[in-house]
Each structure stands twice: as C-alpha cells, then as structure tokens.
Amino acid sequence: MRKIGLIGGLSWTSTARYYQIINQAVARARGGLSSAPVLIESLNFADVARSASADDWDSASRELIGAAQRLETAGAETLLICANSMHKVYDAVAAAVGVPIIHIAEVVGDKMNADGVKSAALIGTRNVMTEKFYRQRLVAHGVSLLPADMKLADRIDTIVYDELVLGKATRESERFMKSELTDIAKQNVQAVILACTELEMIVDVKANVLPIYDCTNIHAMAGARFILSE
C-alpha cells in the first residue's frame, strides 16, 4: 500500500474522522488486520486559526507548508489538507512540495459531475461560502451554486469555532442545521455540499430531503483510494 500524509489539527476532531474513514476503507478492501499507512502532522489549531481570523494568510500558509514538507520528508507519497477553509492556501502549499496534494473541492466536484448534479447549495464557514478559491473549482466542474447566505455563514462560523472544534455537538445546533437544510431543499437545487469538515458532527448526511455531499467523507475516501492504488 502507498503511504499518505494528513495535514491535520484543523481541527483535531475532523482529523480523527479522516483517520477513521481511511482506515475503515482500507480494512474493507484488504480484510483481516489491515490498516492504512498514514502519517499525520497535527498542527496547533490555535495558531492557524489566529492567522486566518487576523487575515494573515501568509502565516497560515507558512504553517501548512512546513507541515507538508515534513510529511514529504517522512515518506508521504501524497497529501491531504484536512480542512476546507485551509484550501485557501492550497496553491502555495502545493508549490512547496514535490508530491501531489489532493484538493478537496476537486474530488467533490468530480463526484458531483459523475452523479450529474448541476446545481447545489454550498454550506461551510464564511470564507468557504463566500470566496472564489473554493467556489470557482466547483463551478469549473459544471456545478451552479446558490449565492452565499451571509447570515448562515456567520452562524456556522459561531457553531464551528465555539463548539465543534472543541468537540461539542449541541442539540440546538443540530436543530438549527436541520431547519436550514429543510429551507434550502425548497429552493431550486439538486444537492447540498457540506463543505466544513466538522459539520458532520451535527448533520445526518443520510437523512435529509436533498442529497448531501459530505466533503470530509469524499476527501478521505480519495485518500484511501490512493493508498490502495498500484
């Protein structure tokens, strides 16, 4: 099996989910006691989040570049950045290493394209919902996106950074997301893109009116396929 590297700690809760999904996929494919050869560079999210919130993306980029280079040196053959929002610095990180980095929006776009989905609502933290670095890659796959809902983006930021990254999943936030997804289903879209690696903690991706493309699962499974590829 091929070895991959995870740039994690963005937050630790979602990194744990990546590790679980990848190992479960490898175990299913290989059977027995098989598990995945994975390297994890778990960053201090407090440092990275501080850079992002202060709009100091150069500092965030340096943190991720350092992690990527250490993983490459340790033998990782491809890398995953285990956060949607941190793909804002994807290009800089990818240019700093000699191994490929699997882009989360690219694999989500590929799957939606294969499924024939042409319209969707993008749900995530503010920078993912509003900025071009993420939206443009999905649009390039032929997916038309609803305009960003700024009130929803602000509420999701609060839920993610005050609760989910700390490992807290409240009933109030679960009810809020269920209500929002019900409202989105009334609009002219075919699917919802769950573009925040922590939101799976409060959204049942299999029990909604619209199909939900869970970016965490799709991205992690892309990593598992790389591990299992010849």
Rank of each mutant, 00 (worst) to 15 (best):
A191R: 02
R225P: 00
Y19V: 10
I123F: 12
L152E: 14
S53M: 15
F45P: 01
Y90G: 01
Y19F: 15
G8C: 01
P100F: 13
E106Y: 00
S35D: 13
I184H: 03
V205I: 15
I159Q: 03
R30A: 14
V93P: 00
K118P: 01
S59Q: 14
W12E: 05
A54R: 15
T15P: 12
A220G: 07
L64D: 02
R155V: 06
N44W: 07
A27Y: 06
D214P: 05
I193P: 05
A68L: 12
L152M: 15
F176V: 07
N217D: 14
L145E: 10
A67D: 00
T182M: 08
I101G: 07
V192R: 09
V139S: 10
K118H: 05
V139I: 13
D149H: 12
M177Q: 02
I22Q: 07
Y90D: 02
Q136L: 10
A207W: 03
L10Y: 03
T170I: 11
M129Q: 04
G66M: 12
A29V: 11
E63S: 13
V139T: 13
D55A: 15
L6Y: 02
V26L: 14
M112F: 01
A105G: 11
L43R: 00
M1W: 12
R70V: 01
E230F: 04
S119Q: 08
F226W: 03
G116F: 06
L79Q: 01
V160I: 15
S144H: 13
E163M: 10
L79Y: 00
R30C: 13
V143T: 09
Y18H: 08
E200V: 12
I104V: 15
M201Y: 10
E77C: 09
M201V: 05
A68Y: 04
K206T: 15
W12F: 14
N208V: 08
F226Y: 13
D214Y: 09
L138G: 08
I227C: 04
R171L: 14
R30L: 14
H219R: 03
G142N: 05
M86S: 05
C196Q: 01
K178C: 04
V205S: 14
S51T: 14
M86L: 11
G66Q: 13
G116E: 03
Q20A: 05
Q24A: 11
A16Y: 06
T73R: 13
I7R: 00
A95S: 09
R126Q: 13
L146A: 08
N127H: 00
G66K: 10
G32K: 12
A60M: 10
I21Q: 09
R28E: 15
A120H: 02
P211W: 02
A96N: 02
G9T: 04
Y19T: 04
F45A: 02
I156S: 01
C82V: 07
I159N: 07
A92E: 01
A49H: 08
H141D: 04
